[in-house]
């Protein structure tokens, strides 16, 4: 817990890292200062893009003692404002699952190689990022915790060439504990879809902790959107940091 007599510092900057297929992409990296070794967290940004909220969230994790990295999953769509780049990706039907998984795995390897890393790494994502985070933590080994915030499309009714397998079908391969935060009023994922996901985790004996918030819909952490719910957000962040502390700091 922060007290006012503490030294606090974060080094945050844009870096270049290797993503899927060895492609060089950019990422936002934040490293807490004044600590010899820290656990790390990879952030999978949401559909609206590699935006300010994600840079702020990356910084926030560093303030809480984590090396944090948010790869630009839309790098291959070119450069412009985050909105314009995200609009291009949207028009293109999103990014391919294999590419997202490769980029997030690359981010995990990047932070693991840092001299400040204590070797423990989690993954966090919201919206499509929650889905990508789940997919990655099932398909790639090396993560010690995953936080899925309202990841839509974890249980898919219809797949497509870019998203050929519903992520929940990989549940048997999940190799780390999962924290899931959801809102009762969300239309994707619906509470029914979250239930299906939960049943799958239960079936395979996975270590999971799901919370379904009343009076909250999709994206209730986003203070710049009408979906923002202050009480649920405060409780949600508390649960996120408590879960990560248990699995990455004290494990």
């Amino acid at each position: 817990m922060y007290t006012t007599d503490m030294y606090e510092g974060v080094h945050a900057e844009t870096v270049t890292m290797k993503g899927a297929n060895g492609d060089e992409i950019n990422a936002y990296l934040a490293i807490p200062l004044g600590k010899e070794k820290s656990p790390a967290i990879v952030l999978a940004h949401h559909m609206p893009g590699w935006d300010e909220w994600y840079r702020e969230a990356t910084y926030k994790f560093a303030l809480h003692g984590y090396i944090a990295i948010s790869p630009n999953l839309y790098f291959r769509a070119g450069h412009g404002t985050p909105e314009d780049v995200a609009a291009k990706v949207r028009a293109d039907g999103g990014i391919a699952d294999n590419q997202a998984v490769g980029d997030l795995e690359g981010a995990m390897k990047y932070v693991r190689a840092l001299k400040e890393s204590n070797g423990k790494i989690g993954i966090f994502g919201t919206c499509s990022g929650g889905r990508h985070a789940y997919l990655t933590s099932c398909r790639v080994s090396g993560f010690d915790a995953i936080v899925d915030c309202w990841g839509g499309g974890v249980v898919m009714e219809k797949t497509n060439p870019k998203m050929p397998v519903s992520p929940h079908e990989y549940t048997k391969d999940l190799s780390c504990p999962i924290l899931g935060l959801f809102g009762e009023e969300d239309s994707s994922p619906t509470p029914e879809q979250v239930k299906i996901h939960e049943e799958e985790l239960k079936k395979h004996g996975k270590n999971y902790e799901f919370h379904m918030y009343p009076n909250a819909g999709h994206g209730f952490f986003y203070y710049h959107r009408p979906a923002y719910r202050v009480e649920q957000t405060l409780d949600g962040w508390k649960k996120v940091f408590s879960f990560l502390e248990k699995n990455l700091m004290n494990a």
């Binding site: 609206p48 949207r90 028009a91 819909g217 994206g219 009408p226």
Partner: peptide, 28 residues
């Protein structure tokens, strides 16, 4: 490009979005 998805600005969870574009520019 017409989509029904998250907006960047309008105060709804999903909106009907139209991006009128050319190679480099967008009117949304």
């Amino acid at each position: 490009n017409v989509s029904f998805d998250h907006p960047f600005h309008a105060p709804y969870e999903h909106t009907l979005n139209i991006d009128f574009v050319n190679e480099n520019q967008r009117v949304a």
